[in-house]
Amino acid sequence: MNQTATTPKVITVHGRKVVGGRAEGEALVTRQTISGWGGINEREGSVIELHHELNGISFAGKILVFPGAKGSSGWSAYFHMCRLNGTAPAAMIFTRMTTKIALGAVVTRVPAITDLDGDVFALIETGDYVSVDADAGTVTITKGGR
């Protein structure tokens, strides 16, 4: 109870636009990088990597908060197919820039932000309600959901 009282309910952090646009929704947070090809099921929009902490969990429609991409160069193609299948995340917030995540975010065509001025892994938990305004470079976090 004390913790709830001392934690601000709404937090805003700033970053750099990768792909413009606005989106909001429930956060899905992982500190582990994600593989595209071989790491996700593009029909369900879920992580399938065996040892991944999100294994079996769907990111469709979520604000995906993660360090970035790893693995095969099929990364962009698989997230591109998620967009075509309607299973893409609503927005991407990531911390490590690579060609895979940059191209992937561009072709997924969802708002994407990086270079944030706060530790998003400390500030955002799965289930928090998050608004992303990539053009303005802002991420607004409502703790504990809406």
Binding site: S73, G74, W75, S76, A77, T99, K100, L103, V107
Partner: peptide, 8 residues
Amino acid sequence: TNVEGKES
């Protein structure tokens, strides 16, 4: 080279 993708 970087790791490029289908589109790039």
